[in-house]
Measured scan of single mutants.
Amino acid sequence: RTRTSFTAEQLYRLEMEFQRCQYVVGRERTELARQLNLSETQVKVWFQNRRTKQKK
């Protein structure tokens, strides 16, 4: 599997969503992935990694 390189715009949007809600599921995840031109899996994993980073 190749590592995803997020654009600055994608990271900004993901961070904004994370500040709003640390868990994104269902339709929200589908819509966010579509808007950012990413897969739902990429969005899901980004949120998982971001929550892990916050715990440290």
Rank of each mutant, 00 (worst) to 15 (best):
T41F: 10
Q10W: 00
T41R: 06
R13S: 11
L32C: 01
R27E: 15
R1N: 08
S5C: 08
L36M: 08
R50D: 00
N49I: 11
C21L: 05
L36C: 09
Q22N: 07
R13E: 04
K53Q: 14
K53L: 15
R13M: 12
N49E: 15
R3V: 14
S5E: 15
E31H: 04
N49P: 00
F6P: 06
R51G: 09
L11A: 11
K56F: 05
T30M: 08
S39Y: 02
Q54L: 12
T7V: 04
N37L: 06
V24C: 14
R20E: 07
Y23N: 14
T52R: 07
K44C: 11
E15P: 00
R20W: 03
Y12S: 13
Q35M: 11
Q19F: 06
E15V: 01
L36G: 00
A33W: 04
V43L: 09
K56V: 13
L14P: 00
T30G: 08
V43F: 01
V25T: 11
E28A: 06
A33Y: 02
R1E: 12
W46E: 01
R34P: 00
L38T: 05
L14I: 03
Q10H: 05
G26N: 06
C21S: 12
L11D: 13
T4D: 09
T30E: 13
K44N: 12
L32K: 03
R3W: 13
F18K: 01
T7N: 10
F18C: 02
N37A: 08
R1F: 14
M16C: 11
V45H: 12
Q10T: 11
R13F: 06
L38V: 13
R20F: 04
E9C: 06
L38E: 01
F47M: 08
K44S: 14
Q54V: 12
G26I: 03
M16V: 11
N49H: 05
C21G: 09
Q48F: 14
R27I: 15
T30Y: 14
Q54D: 14
R50S: 04
L11K: 07
V25N: 06
V25M: 05
L14D: 01
Q35L: 10
R20V: 09
T4H: 04
E40F: 00
E31K: 03
A33E: 00
N37W: 03
R34E: 07
Q19I: 09
T52W: 06
C21F: 08
T52G: 14
A33D: 00
V43Y: 03
T4S: 11
G26W: 01
R27C: 12
R1G: 12
